[in-house]
Nucleic acid binder design. Structure first.
Lengths: 275, 275
DNA sequence: GATTGACATTCCCCTTAGGGTAAAGTTTAT
DNA sequence: ATAAACTTTACCCTAAGGGGAATGTCAATC
């Protein structure tokens, strides 16, 4: 075996490209033992093999070249880097498993329906201050009358300023579906707390770390489909419901003429089920 | 709720950055509904919400923006993309699990020994044509005499040309460790097959898809440590041995004076155990 | 009407770990 | 001497945006 290898030979021995070797030289990870002063040719020897072996091993474990460089300069740090990487890998595995469930749920959920599928997404819901009005209303018609007429006026009276972006949602407190005497709470995000009045209460709602959200387009009568879908999705993807769902109103009668254009987002606070 | 949102407002509603929205505009993934002709200001409306929701969902499943773009343009392709992605995710999970085992094996294997650790790496061994000489030798001393004197001369006599890079290794055919009467085969990579002679046989060795390799620095008496290490590693990392290990000689007496500088690579063909 | 602060625009460089290509120089073999 | 094989540097490219600078616009206040 010859003493000295050109970059091409060294790359063949180690089954990596010359590009990679030049890159490692450039970032100071693995310098050739000798560089010709005039031609710039790189010459490697077997003494580089041990370092390269270590580099490739650490790379196989998933460390970045920067981390590897630090490890080579300070071998005592290797435990630290590997422990951090271990956690990192565990997180990656969890994330990939979540993707897998989501993909499979999507694939199994429908057979050939391409267009009208709901696409659930996990979002964080930020902390928010709301003005809330909770009532038992006779039916939905009454409710839609109540909202602009009573609530908006009361908010104005108390000097409320709506948050931007606007965020208005309902929470249904009945455990079951009801057509009459619905216990509904309507919340509107505002910039600051005010004195509670008889009909309007203020509260700070904590951040929700993760909520499954789906967009529903169309009239409210078909919201049931969205509910059915999202609860099924939650079960299939191994989540559990943490709180009442929120119905967030984006487009509606105040905005779009046709009920087909109304847009509502369903937001269900969840967490991964701990088995 | 207002009809039209500036980019900042739209970013707040959807909890993504304006950078991201501009990027999506640039690559044609999500165009704002209206762009002011003179100022270039982007204006979004709720009609973008459905598409954006879908984009974010698909992104959460791990699809690239390019793939998402194709899916939006041709919704029927979504099944194909998701199935490919599913396999991709499965591969990623396997790869991450392998990393995890490797990291943990490294961490558990030693307590505070930073320097003299072996660093195993999984490599592919390419297909190779070898001139091989198999004999039962009395002891290692005889063997080291045999190699240059008998084998090299016979190779020269037959007109063999060594492959570049040089690749010379031993295979021990005894199932157990022996000090005497060792059944050893010495192989040297050559460029082409020749007529077999009494002492020299030619054969093509198939590619080995994966082999665990460790570098051993020092005299051959301590090779046992490397063997112990690598077999232990194989067990811990859920691999199984497929073939005889190869001892590949890199630096040795022909090269380096001090036995402490000798370099040998142990290569053990393996595969992941199927449970 | 003028100013100010918040918000918007484009432009350019940066991230990882190299890949691809081009133009020019070097080594080795014929 | 010349051609083939090899090497060098230099420049641009990847995915999904992040950071910042210089500049332009909008809405509200003075």
């Amino acid at each position: 075996m010859k003493y000295v290898f050109t970059i091409g030979m060294f790359s063949k021995i180690n089954r990596i490209t010359t590009k990679t070797l030049r890159h490692y030289d450039e970032i100071g990870l693995l310098k050739p033992e000798h560089v010709d002063e005039f031609t710039g040719y790189r010459y490697y020897t077997t003494s580089q093999l041990v370092d390269l072996h270590k580099i490739l091993t650490l790379k196989q474990m998933g460390l970045s070249l920067n981390d590897i460089k630090e490890v080579l300069e300070n071998p005592k740090a290797i435990d630290l880097f590997l422990k951090l990487k271990e956690e990192d890998v565990l997180r990656t595995i969890e994330a990939e498993k979540a993707k897998l469930l989501q993909i499979r749920s999507y694939l199994s959920c429908r057979e050939g329906e391409y267009e009208k599928m709901y696409t659930p997404i996990i979002k964080e819901l930020p902390e928010v201050i709301v003005a809330s009005m909770r009532q038992v209303v006779e039916n939905y018609g009454v409710f839609f009358h109540l909202c602009p007429n009573v609530m908006a006026k009361e908010m104005e009276r108390l000097g409320c300023v709506c948050a931007v972006p606007e965020y208005c949602f309902n929470i249904y407190h009945d455990g079951e579906y009801k057509e009459k005497d619905i216990d509904v709470e309507i919340c509107e995000a505002v910039t600051e707390m005010k004195e509670d009045s008889d009909i309007l209460k203020f509260k700070k709602i904590d951040k929700v770390p993760s909520a499954v959200c789906v967009l529903h387009k169309g009239p409210y009568e078909r919201l049931g489909e969205a509910y059915a879908f999202v609860f099924n999705w939650i079960k299939e993807n191994n989540y559990e419901v943490l709180d009442h769902p929120r119905e967030s109103y984006i487009d509606g009668i105040w905005n779009k003429e046709s009920a087909e254009d109304w847009l509502t987002e369903l937001q269900v606070p969840v967490r991964l089920k701990v088995d």
